[in-house]
Amino acid sequence: MNGVTVATAYVGPMPERISREDVARIAQLARLTLGDDELDRFTSQLGDILDHARDLAALDLDGVAATAHPFPLRNVMRDDVATPSLDRDEVLAAAPEIESHMFAVPPVLGEPA
């Protein structure tokens, strides 16, 4: 993230209300095609979720440390020891298309950006 200031990572200014265009953009990033009725429904649902976040943001939390996780856990790590891999043929059998023991996928460029 060269040159990008990341200090304000998740804490942007809250938009007034999520718009239909915002939802369409998010759907596009996830390569989802949404119909008109779905766009309306998700705009409304996402708006409700953001309303809840807005309620939380309105609380006076001065003096409360930022929390990345609700559990009182830190430093959960494992030893660097190898475990058996899955059977390749079994895994590839679940793929729609394979070639030369690899997953064959549509071209990565030329899709909607």
Binding site: R78, T83, R88
Partner: peptide, 22 residues
């Protein structure tokens, strides 16, 4: 490392395709 960042699958260059998977 001997294994991947979040699992015990081997971190090994040059293996047959899709053999170090979990």
């Amino acid at each position: 490392t001997a294994t991947k960042l979040f699992s015990g699958s081997p971190n090994h260059f040059g293996g047959e395709p899709n053999t170090n998977i979990d």
